[in-house]
Each structure stands twice: as C-alpha cells, then as structure tokens.
C-alpha cells in the first residue's frame, strides 16, 4: 500500500475561526446531540426545524426525516428503544460549523442549490458534495456534518472563501 501521509493535511480541531469577506466560520461544540426516531416524532415535536426555518435558543430540534429528528442540547436520554422511540447519542458524530456574516448565504450557495424559495421539511441536504444538516439559527447558518467528513467540509469552505 502506498504511504499517502504527505498528501493529506493533518486535521486540526478547528478551534480557530475562519474569516473571509463578509463571512466567519466557527466551530460550535454542543453539549449533546441526539437522534430520535419514532412514527409520531414530528407530531410530538412541532418545532422541529426544516429549511428555511429558524431554530431558536441554545436547545433546538431539527427535522431530518419523516420519522426522525436531531435534538441539539436537549435532555440526557438513554440509548435504545423504549417502546415508543429509538434514541442514539450522536454528540461526537456530528461536527457543527456556524457561519455568520452578511455573505453567509452566498457561501452556502457555492455548495448547494438552495434558496428560501425552495423550502424543505427536512434540514438534511447535500452541500459541497457531502451530506450535511443545514439550519438557520438566529442570524447565522449552522452546518452539522459527520465528524469523519468535517475536515473535508472545512477545507472546502476555506477554499470557497478565497474565491468569493
């Protein structure tokens, strides 16, 4: 097998924010992220945000699928099936980047065909070639991406900022 160590940047912990013209990208470290699936989860979670809904507060819930939500900074829950819903802790599984600044949306449009004119019940989409969960929170945009792909997303965002 070929040693490709030199071909790949060593992943950083992304603690230093990335700034470009009209955008700043910072990493948000959540206390908890939980996947909850149930047939009636959306009925029970009326505030679960899709696109272009705005998630509010420190603790918020995003709609992922017809029967699944992502709870961010919610209460501690036990993993498994409790007779009503399936729960999995995914706190370390999704890295969160927050994009602030007047050109935040312009940056996102580099990686996805997205606009407020195309609303979507689910917050999951493909952006920059990766599967991400994208939501608005207050005046910012938040991207949740699989931890294993966070380096790829961050590098893409950094590249795009230089071209904007």
């Amino acid at each position: 097998m070929r040693d490709d160590s030199h071909k790949w940047d060593v992943p950083q912990n992304f603690s230093a924010p990335l700034a470009g013209p009209g955008v700043t990208i910072s990493r948000i470290i959540p206390d908890r992220q939980t996947l909850i699936s149930a047939p009636d989860i959306l009925a029970r979670t009326p505030g679960a945000a899709g696109w272009p809904d705005r998630a509010a507060g420190d603790s918020y819930t995003l709609c992922l699928r017809r029967d699944r939500v992502l709870e961010v900074n919610g209460p501690a829950r036990t993993d498994g099936w409790d007779g009503q819903q399936a729960v999995s802790d995914i706190t370390d599984g999704l890295t969160i980047f927050e994009i602030t600044g007047p050109r935040a949306m312009e940056l996102i449009r580099r990686g996805a065909e997205i606009s407020d004119a195309l609303p979507s019940r689910s917050a999951v989409r493909q952006a920059f070639g990766l599967e991400v969960i994208l939501c608005r929170r207050q005046d910012a945009l938040r991207l949740h991406v699989a931890r294993t792909e966070a380096q790829a997303l961050r590098k893409q965002l950094a590249d795009h900022i230089t071209l904007m």
Binding site: L118, R121, S122, R125, Q126
Partner: peptide
C-alpha cells in the same frame, strides 16, 4: 441537472437522489 420532488422535502437537486 434535474429537480426532483421528494414527497417529504419538496424539490431537490437530482444529485441527492
């Protein structure tokens, strides 16, 4: 590049399908 209507999400780019 087509736009497909997901019954749950609405119109999305064909790359997602």
């Amino acid at each position: 590049m087509q736009l497909f209507p997901c019954p749950f999400c609405g119109l999305r780019n064909e790359r997602e399908f």
